[in-house]
Design a binder for these strands. Sequence first.
DNA 1: GGAGCATTCTGGTCTATACCAACTGCACGA
DNA 2: TCGTGCAGTTGGTATAGACCAGAATGCTCC
Lengths: 239, 239
Amino acid sequence: MQQPDSLQYLGVRDDIAARIAGGAFKPGERLPSERQLQAGGGVARGTVREALFQLEAEGVIYRKDRSGWYVSPPPVVYDPTRWEGFMSYVEAQGRRPETETLSKVEIVADDMLAQIFSRPVGAPMYWIRRRRLIDGRAVLIESIIVDAARAPGLIDHDLNGSLTSVLKSVYGIGVARNKVDMRPCALTRDEAEALRVKSGLPGLSLVRTCYDAQGHVVEFDREYWRHDALTVSVDIRVR
Amino acid sequence: MQQPDSLQYLGVRDDIAARIAGGAFKPGERLPSERQLQAGGGVARGTVREALFQLEAEGVIYRKDRSGWYVSPPPVVYDPTRWEGFMSYVEAQGRRPETETLSKVEIVADDMLAQIFSRPVGAPMYWIRRRRLIDGRAVLIESIIVDAARAPGLIDHDLNGSLTSVLKSVYGIGVARNKVDMRPCALTRDEAEALRVKSGLPGLSLVRTCYDAQGHVVEFDREYWRHDALTVSVDIRVR
DNA sequence: GGAGCATTCTGGTCTATACCAACTGCACGA
DNA sequence: TCGTGCAGTTGGTATAGACCAGAATGCTCC
């Protein structure tokens, strides 16, 4: 599957990429519309879109539905071993973090949750869904489960800040160990809708299990990130 | 960007996905051609392709250029903290690993490599490029740099097996610490060609720096994985 | 000045068609 | 038996046109 430069859409891609690299469009700025790019390049709109899809896959640009194509800001660096919460982490990198709580409800543990938390099926749990933004752009959606018995009344607190610090300061629960699973994925249906992206856009699925010093599960967290929003960095000793 | 089920390509997607889940097509098997699917669904070929792209992004299917669409095998699990080489690792999961050495040459360190290895610019280095396959499918391409002064004659050895074990058994160099950077990316140009995928397919970029017990850099490794070929799992204590 | 509404613009979906290049399989011949 | 070459099939690229729904804009009226 060679890429001879004879392919028109790669030519259009290179043209737009060069203009972005040259500073003609800055991070966050809008590109000309597809129809304008089409006229400028003398190609069909489908070809322009193919070029834009390439740049989107590379993380160079992103789209807002029916609004336009925009130049991507740089990604944040994520180190699971140094993670102390989204808000402080993002702020430390000079970006503006925001959190929106989409829902918070009490549920009962199903088989999977019961096993994860080592609790009986039917045990009360809190289910929190949040959307998190960087510089005004939604970058991840997360679904958190916390054992209600260990943090009674948790969902009555303001959860738009750091959940970790609420658990620590209000309930005295600290995190001693993290297990993180990562997997490239496609953002589909619910996640895509919540992040306001087109279904099928590549993303990163991140499943975090937090344990306290006694080895009990404190928090079980599924996150779906935009693929262009982060870099993961892990520094570990070989066992 | 809601997904009302009125969208035709999502309907086609669901139809194909259901047939795969139902066992009509097994991992590794070929799907009917786009033109056959088109006729069966009564839609345009572009719509069928849109549905196939969705499933590809989700990792459900993959394509061989001008050959057809195939059902994806399950991903391998990758734990950077337990990594003892591709070959043994993949075999332990019941899969068949292969390695092809694409090139191995001596180069001189540029600014970046000099800094990484704490060696002068111009120091001799070995540059090894390999392609690695699971069950006959190319899943990753890697580019490895090793300090030639620490492993003289390395590239005269057979490098289709475990590089780690060659470094250990022949040169007595062990790895004590790993630094791993991960980032969702697009496979473009060289990587895409080496993996025989279409440029722009999502992938995972993995940069590994291996240190010995003295903190010297042993090996610097850039890997590009197919996005559907692996799951990353990290288990770490919070500092 | 602000709320509400209509228009315009934008990307999203879909159809139909055409041609190309790489792969596949088969038939043929050495 | 083993290549070799041809023909058919497949996905890849590109065009042109059409319509839709949501976003953005600007206008009007209160």
